[in-house]
Simulated assay, not measured.
Amino acid sequence: MLYKRAQTAILTLTAAVLLPAAPAAVFLSAAPAAAAPSLLPAGQARMILLERSGGFAGERTSFVVDRTTVGGRPALRMAGSRAFQQLRRSYQPRNPCCDRYAYRVTVTYRLGYRKTVETVQGTNAPHVLWDVINQSERYGVRPFTPRTATP
């Protein structure tokens, strides 16, 4: 599969150099969708950090999903998808009332690229965002946070 992607990328670059007047979309649309190289800079998701805050009690909780997280691979696949990578930075409700959870999803991709998306519980946001949030809450590991000593 890696060989096929590399071959497609080389062919696309060669065609673009030899025929500079033709738009790049012509070369990409000629290849099958499965073999087309990713045009997004991020690629494969390496880690998801979900920060959840608010609600009635005003709590703050974090969840981490990476390649070692049991059950975390579907969330990483969704976070690496084109649909997720094309999300806006923020999806906010029209009416900011009530005690809702606020979510900040930060995905780290290979080569260090990061994408952060923020939303609030009950907001009309794309399904892929809610799927990543739900999977991260379900399978994510809560990082250790030391408690401060009370005298």
Rank of each mutant, 00 (worst) to 15 (best):
A21I: 02
G54V: 02
Y3L: 12
L18V: 02
Y91N: 12
L76W: 09
A35K: 03
P126C: 08
R138F: 07
G43W: 03
A149Q: 10
A102G: 08
S136Y: 05
I10F: 07
A6D: 04
P96W: 01
L13F: 08
P146G: 14
P20N: 03
A24D: 00
P41Q: 06
R73P: 00
G54N: 02
Y103N: 04
M78H: 14
Q85R: 13
F27I: 03
N124L: 11
G140C: 13
A75R: 10
F144R: 12
T119N: 04
V107N: 07
L111R: 15
V120L: 05
P143D: 06
G55E: 04
A125K: 01
L129G: 07
P20Q: 06
S81T: 08
G112I: 09
E51A: 12
Q121F: 03
Q92N: 05
Q44K: 14
A16V: 00
V105Y: 04
Q7M: 06
T150F: 03
P93Y: 08
R73H: 11
Q121A: 09
V120F: 02
L13S: 12
D131S: 15
G112T: 10
R88W: 00
L2H: 05
V65Y: 11
L28E: 13
T68N: 15
A149C: 05
E137P: 01
Y109E: 05
A83K: 09
R77T: 15
G58V: 02
P20E: 06
V120W: 04
V105Q: 05
A22V: 13
P32H: 10
V17K: 08
Y139G: 00
E51D: 14
V26Y: 11
Q7C: 08
R114F: 00
H127M: 01
R77Q: 14
V132A: 08
A57S: 06
T14C: 03
A15R: 01
G80V: 06
G80K: 07
L13G: 13
R67A: 14
A16M: 09
E51Y: 07
E118Y: 04
Q121P: 00
L18Q: 10
Q7S: 05
A35V: 13
R110G: 10
F84I: 05
Q85P: 03
R138S: 10
A9W: 01
A30S: 14
E59G: 13
P96D: 11
R142Q: 14
P96A: 11
R114D: 14
P23N: 07
G80S: 07
R147G: 12
L39G: 15
A102N: 12
D66K: 09
G43A: 04
L87P: 07
R114P: 01
Y103V: 08
R73K: 15
S62Y: 09
A15G: 13
S38C: 06
M1K: 02
R67I: 11
Q7H: 01
R52K: 15
P37F: 08
I48T: 04
R94M: 04
G122T: 02
Y103W: 02
T106Y: 08
L50M: 12
L11W: 01
A22C: 02
